[in-house]
Amino acid sequence: MGASDGQKDARAVVIDVRDLYKIYEVGTTRVRALNGVTFQVYEGEFCAIVGTSGSGKSTLLNMLAGLEKPTKGEILIAGQHIEKMNENKLVRFRQKNVGFIFQSFNLLGTMNALENVALPLSFRGIPKAVRLKRAAKMLKLVGLEKHALHKPNQMSGGQQQRVGMARALVVNPKIMFADEPTGNLDSRTSKEMMTLMRRIVNEHKKTLVMVTHDDSLAAIADRVIRIVDGRIVRIEDRTSGTVLEFHQKKKTPVKQENTRHPAGEGRTDTGVFIGGSQK
């Protein structure tokens, strides 16, 4: 496990991000998508990364899942430096540790719900009978056992996303990543989805990292990390009730609030910016 960076938290660190940079070169200009990001995610935690479009939140998630390489910095997941892995190692790493929920569901159209859920198991060489059994169990967990034989185009968006969630869960990953999981869903379905995710994290002790632009959805998380222009401006830990806010170019917290917010409610302080952007 990665070392705790001074937090007096007894919980194990699953994701340890240190001073992470991602710089894209677009023509002659350099765009800093991530500009020195440091944070930890603890085991069994529901962590939301919130930011507007272009804030760098998706880039961050991609790097956590090993889909993109950082320009600089370290990412330790379950104690392993994934920024140093080549693509083959990353695949093995994902097989072992990671489940992924996509914004646009990304179910394979040729397969029914059950087969879609079983697909990641087939990449791990698990025999068909075993994986279909496990997939059926996962479908039941997300409440879709009656739709097991439906193709994706026979299901609603919410149902498809629940299949996607079952698919992420079926490999029993340490960490689940969700990239705007409700981005293609209406608000009512989104809410159902979030409740389901909350339930699964609680009941199955999963670590879930979710990226969203929607503050009301982030409110359900244990911890909310807010990113603006490639920097973390605020980390709100709702289990301990602490809020860390960061000045521009400094990683030390400048303000602590002791306000405790009830879970599941929309936040009122989302608009607070203490650190400014450089651009």
Partner: peptide
Amino acid sequence: VMKVLGCTLGN
């Protein structure tokens, strides 16, 4: 998608 879900390059 398959790569994200853990399909190896060889596969």
